[in-house]
Amino acid sequence: MTRWSELDDDDASLADALNAAYAPSDEADRQRLDELAAAATSAEDAATRADLEAAWRPGELDPEVHEELLRLALDASDNGALEEALAAAWRPTDLSEAVHEALLSAALDDPMAEPSREERRAASELRDALANRTDHPDVALAEALRSAAAPQPVSELVSARAARAAIDSGSATSAGGGKRSRVVVAFIGSALAAAAAFAIAVNIPRGPTPTGPTAAQPDLAQARSASELFSQKFERHQTSSRVDRIARARARDLRANRYAAWGVKP
């Protein structure tokens, strides 16, 4: 019979079965034993059949295996993986419904199934968004994947400017002047009017000021109507997504203005 110490990951289900057989605690365990009975009957390999049969019959767990199990359980305090395996075998928990659904989807989804009209439309949108790097939830997810799999180095300019801004900021504070580089974002208008326009003013009173021929005023995004963001009239009850779109666009403006003011980007 297979010894507990000889079980590997692939034998996790057998380990599970051994314990269920040893102390069936609920209907799920009994059902599992029934499945094992069927498997044992049909198993062609003699050793496998012996293991399954041993697991099948409650109370017939090999005492040596049980001793081995207990010894390992007591000795395994510094072995997280083994602890987890033992706990899973001793007190198996139910599979989360959400996890189960995800597993089913992975197994049953047919990547080559005929797409619906809606799927074709969504696929086209994703294609365009990836090509143009425009706002799209999957573009953000794609960037997250790339950032985790192969993160690119930060621009030296961005890093150096940020370091200098932090140090200048700290110097100003410690000197008691209380003046910090600051970025002021002014939203103009009421909550609804925020959808129409807001102004961004970037003011960096401290820190290095470029001089000479390179000190040209950066071309900053200006306050303007939000109408250019919408090609068609918004339906009622979509005010939240409308404001979200404006907020995203203006956040981009703000970031671009900051980089322009720092001289990092034109």
């Binding site: 953000a140 997810l141 960037e143 997250a144 994947l145 950032s147 985790a148 993160p151 690119q152 180095p153 930060v154 030296e156 961005v158 890093s159 940020a162 370091a163 801004a165 932090a166 140090i167 900021s169 700290g170 970031r255």
Partner: peptide, 30 residues
């Protein structure tokens, strides 16, 4: 700083723009 950005911030935040801002905030806190 570049190492913090590439190994810590960018993989966890998943966006260059957000990671750059996070690096700036990190510097200020440091």
């Amino acid at each position: 700083g570049p190492r913090l950005y590439r190994a810590v911030l960018l993989p966890r935040l998943g966006s260059r723009a957000i990671a750059e801002e996070a690096l700036s905030t990190t510097y200020i806190k440091v």
